[in-house]
């Protein structure tokens, strides 16, 4: 491999990840490490969401179902079998297979629909998963949830940190490769102009279904890590709030980039931590979601590309068109389809 061919940004990312590897040696507090672990997990989740929203232009309000599938598959295998690495890996395999299966079925059935219908249908489907988890108490423990034991290696918060960070880095570079591949280019073409891509001979639904399977599988892995980090799982992993959280992270950080969701996850998690800490000072901080919602609305109106996207389009001369300037295309699309 010729090092000169490596993208300049790759070096930056590698250096950043090295720095992150050193963090647990500087910040030894468990709670601080826990926040970082949560950030890594949600960064993975948000990146998977961005594959749909930012790269393909699909809005799903039910992405949390894959997250929940991942969390429950691990938790259930870990509590039914002994807590070894073997049963953990078994749980991961089950999570991945289930998520791939569900996302494939959902995708095949619904991705032919227009954006509104898809958004509504996924919102309702996620609601269905939540209800199912609440009713199937023998397996899921309902809203009370259940705890489980971890394999030896994950009990230490430092090694958990390393494991999550490593997963984040591997998934980041994997998804980066995926989005830069010819396949990823077609996804972006679909985002920019669906009709034109179709008339160029690409089968749009195939591409969308594969994108949603990739996103679903990655999201389920985030769910696996989430269950591991908490050593506990309840129906909260299917709550729509989590979809909204991850939507905020993606939008604020920057849609259509992979660094954006990571940055967004960091911002949202830290803000969450600090603002709920401020709740003792004034009760209004308990309602920090208002602040988020407002920031989010302002970002959607004024910086539809998010932090990273806005910076990128400043520096490069070919601005990402995607989410802002396709009004006309969308309007035409809507007219033709109806």
């Amino acid at each position: 491999m010729n090092l000169r061919n490596v993208d300049k940004s790759t070096w930056i990312y590698l250096i950043a990840s090295l720095l992150l590897f050193m963090v647990p040696f500087i910040l030894t507090g468990r709670s601080m490490q826990f926040i970082f672990i949560q950030i890594f997990i949600f960064a993975i989740f948000a990146m998977s969401y961005d594959i749909l929203l930012g790269f393909t232009g699909i809005i799903s309000f039910g992405h949390v179902m894959f997250f929940g599938i991942g969390a429950y598959s691990t938790a259930i295998t870990m509590s039914k079998f002994d807590s070894t690495i073997g049963s953990f890996l078994f749980g991961v395999v089950i999570a991945v297979i289930l998520a791939a299966f569900v996302s494939f079925i959902v995708g095949v059935l619904t991705l032919r629909l227009k954006s509104h219908f898809y958004a509504m249908l996924t919102l309702a489907l996620a609601g269905l998963f939540l209800v199912a988890a609440e009713k199937w108490r023998t397996l899921t423990g309902g809203n009370d949830g259940f705890t489980f034991r971890l394999p030896e290696i994950f009990r230490d918060s430092q090694s958990m940190y390393m494991f999550c960070l490593l997963s984040l880095i591997l998934i980041f570079f994997g998804l980066r490769r995926f989005t830069k591949s010819p396949f990823g280019r077609v996804l972006m073409a679909i985002r920019e102009n669906e009709n034109r891509t179709e008339s160029l001979g690409y089968k749009i639904v195939h591409y969308k279904v594969i994108a949603s399977v990739v996103a679903g599988v990655v999201a389920s892995f985030a769910g696996v890590l989430y269950a591991l980090s908490l050593r506990f799982v309840n129906t909260g992993v299917f709550a729509t709030d989590l979809t909204i959280d991850v939507l905020l992270m993606t939008i604020i950080g920057g849609v259509g980039t992979l660094v954006g969701p990571i940055l967004g996850a960091g911002l949202v998690e830290f803000a969450h931590h600090w603002l709920s800490g401020l709740a003792d000072v004034h009760w209004i901080f308990e309602r920090w979601i208002i602040l988020y919602g407002t920031v989010y609305i302002l970002v959607v109106i004024f910086f539809p590309l998010g932090i990273v996207g806005t910076i990128q389009s400043r520096f490069s001369n070919r601005p990402l068109k995607g989410l802002r300037d396709n009004r006309k295309a969308n309007e035409n699309k809507g007219r033709r389809a109806s």
């Binding site: 232009g57 396709n326 309007e331």
Partner: peptide, 10 residues
């Protein structure tokens, strides 16, 4: 107006 994705999000 006219941008479905932004409408749904906002």
């Amino acid at each position: 107006y006219g941008n479905h994705i932004q409408q749904i999000l906002i």
